[in-house]
Amino acid sequence: MAKKIKEYNKLPKERRGKVKLLNELSGSEWTQLSKSVMSYGGAIAEKRKKHGAAFPITLVEHFLKIYTKQGDTVLDPFLGVGTTADACVLLNRNCIGFELNKEFFELAKAGIDPIDSKGREVYDVDLKLYNESCLELDKFIPSESVDLVITSPPYADLLHKVADKFAGYTYEKNIYKSQGRELAKPYSDHEEDLGNLTWEQYQNKIDILMGKLYNVTTEGGFNVWVVRDYRDIQNHIPYVNLHSKIIELATKNNWILIDIVIWDQTAQRKLVKLGGAKSRRFYFNIGHSFILIFRKNIRGEKFKNV
């Protein structure tokens, strides 16, 4: 981004008004994409059904259109089955991705599903996908070379806890089965998998990762995390405020929080009865995720976190 601004400043004044630094959106597109509460639909590709927690490709495309231009480089440190890479192929962005789960990695490498590419141009972009831990990303990516990070992380060892123990899990499993989808389960037994860590270990690794992401992102680049708060009833924790912890760890590593979008998932998540009159507990269904948007300052900017 800093390079783009320097190039922009070298242009004659009469040309500057015609050059777009951030994206390629028209004024009306810019406005329509700026809603703070969003829902994302579309068909579910077969490989995303196998993942169980993959975000929709329409979600990724939404933020690629806002925070990148054609030819920019996008990084997903938790690539999964490759939804981010597929969106990049459709929108002509280069992509770097890391995924520890071998099965997911192979699905990501297999390329875009016909249900996503139907009737659309598929670009020949630079895809660099690694079956490695994202905590090793600085071994593969030069500093200040990524324009946008977009990802959805694992939630510590949550998936080891919920199976048949969390209220609503069995019901949700039946809903997924009717849709031909698999419910999310532990992704791997790898010691570097953040989905196998305790809450304390998880925070430490996210802290390290946020610092590494900051180093490889260009000045003025963006970092978008899709996270959903959850409950750890097994350990008597009624509400795990994950999105606030992610914000804390990101801002600790100099990321500037610039926006939060609410992803309304109520259309995809059926309501279940949580708690009970006998226990005097009433829990709301968590039918939304937080999309946290951070930015790396350009040298000389004065934006700061409160």
Results as ranks from 00 to 15, higher is better:
269 R>L: 14
79 L>H: 06
209 L>C: 06
96 I>M: 01
20 K>Y: 12
11 L>E: 14
188 S>G: 11
282 F>C: 13
190 H>E: 13
242 L>T: 11
63 F>Q: 04
51 H>D: 14
172 E>P: 08
41 G>L: 04
111 G>M: 11
265 Q>F: 11
83 T>S: 03
86 D>N: 12
103 E>W: 06
102 K>G: 05
136 E>A: 14
175 I>P: 02
41 G>V: 06
17 G>W: 09
44 I>M: 10
128 K>W: 01
131 N>M: 10
94 N>H: 07
61 E>Y: 05
152 S>A: 13
291 I>C: 00
233 I>N: 14
92 N>L: 09
169 Y>S: 11
37 V>M: 08
140 F>T: 07
79 L>P: 00
253 N>C: 11
106 E>M: 13
19 V>N: 00
252 K>E: 09
3 K>S: 13
141 I>P: 00
269 R>G: 07
263 W>R: 08
265 Q>H: 11
101 N>D: 12
261 V>Q: 09
92 N>I: 09
211 G>T: 01
242 L>R: 06
87 A>N: 01
127 L>P: 04
149 V>W: 01
260 I>P: 07
179 Q>E: 12
195 G>A: 07
56 P>W: 03
281 R>C: 11
101 N>C: 14
280 R>D: 08
54 A>S: 15
191 E>K: 15
237 I>G: 11
28 S>K: 13
161 K>D: 14
155 Y>K: 04
163 A>Q: 15
224 V>S: 01
89 V>G: 02
115 I>L: 05
62 H>G: 02
255 W>L: 04
94 N>A: 04
122 V>Q: 15
184 A>Q: 09
115 I>T: 04
100 L>D: 03
93 R>Q: 03
255 W>F: 10
85 A>N: 10
51 H>C: 12
7 E>N: 15
211 G>N: 00
97 G>D: 01
254 N>T: 09
162 V>A: 02
127 L>A: 09
121 E>Y: 10
95 C>G: 02
291 I>P: 01
19 V>T: 05
149 V>G: 00
238 P>H: 06
5 I>F: 08
63 F>S: 04
96 I>K: 01
209 L>F: 06
108 A>T: 02
249 L>Y: 10
75 L>P: 00
57 I>W: 05
202 Y>N: 00
80 G>V: 00
306 V>D: 15
247 I>A: 02
152 S>Q: 08
230 Y>A: 05
11 L>I: 13
9 N>C: 12
39 S>N: 04
180 G>L: 08
151 T>C: 15
60 V>T: 14
103 E>R: 11
208 I>T: 13
123 Y>V: 02
192 E>I: 05
93 R>G: 01
147 D>A: 05
129 L>E: 01
232 D>E: 06
210 M>W: 03
167 A>E: 15
